[in-house]
C-alpha cells in the first residue's frame, strides 16, 4: 500500500511574489513508522515543454528517523523566503512551474512523491503580437 502524503500551504495561497515567505505543512500517513527511511521536502522549480527538463531546488530538507524521535510521519512545518527568479511562466516552447515536493523514502529503495504547485510572480501568457 502506498503511503499518503499531505501537503498544505498556510493560508491556501496559490500565488506568491518574489521575497514572500511560503509556510508549508506536510504529513505522511498509511505507512508504518519503521518502514520510513527518510523524508525529503523541497521547494523547487522545473521546466516542461519541448526542451530537456531542467530543475532548480530553492529549499531542501532531509529528515531521518533520528531527527523526528523515530517517527517521520508526524506533522512538520517549514518556511522559506521565495527567490526573485525564475518566475512561473507558461510559454510556447517552455513552461516554468514551482511546487513543493515531499518524497517519502521507504525500505528497499521504494520512493513515493507528492507535489503541491503554486505560482511565483505574475507573468502573463506568451502571445505573439505583430
Amino acid at each position: 500500500m502506498e503511503p499518503l502524503i499531505s501537503i498544505q500551504i498556510q493560508g491556501d495561497r496559490p500565488c506568491f511574489l518574489p521575497g514572500d515567505v511560503i509556510e508549508c505543512d506536510y504529513q505522511i500517513d498509511a505507512v508504518l513508522p519503521e518502514e520510513l527511511v527518510a523524508v525529503e521536502a523541497s521547494v523547487l522549480w522545473y521546466t516542461e515543454g519541448k526542451g530537456g527538463e531542467d530543475m532548480g531546488v530553492h529549499y531542501f530538507e532531509r529528515r531521518l528517523p533520528a531527527d523526528a524521535e523515530g517517527d517521520l510521519r508526524q506533522w512538520r512545518r517549514f518556511q522559506t523566503a521565495l527567490p526573485n527568479s525564475p518566475l512561473t511562466y507558461t510559454g510556447s516552447l517552455i513552461q516554468v512551474h514551482w511546487c513543493i515536493r515531499v518524497r517519502a523514502i521507504l525500505k528497499h529503495g521504494k520512493q513515493y512523491c507528492c507535489e503541491h504547485p503554486f505560482r511565483l510572480g505574475r507573468v502573463g501568457l506568451a502571445t505573439l503580437s505583430e
Binding site: T47, G52, D54, G56, S85, L87, I94, V123, A126
Partner: peptide, 11 residues
Amino acid sequence: GVMHSFQSDHN
C-alpha cells in the same frame, strides 16, 4: 507582465 530573461541548461 512579460517573462524575464531566463537561462537554464536546456531552456
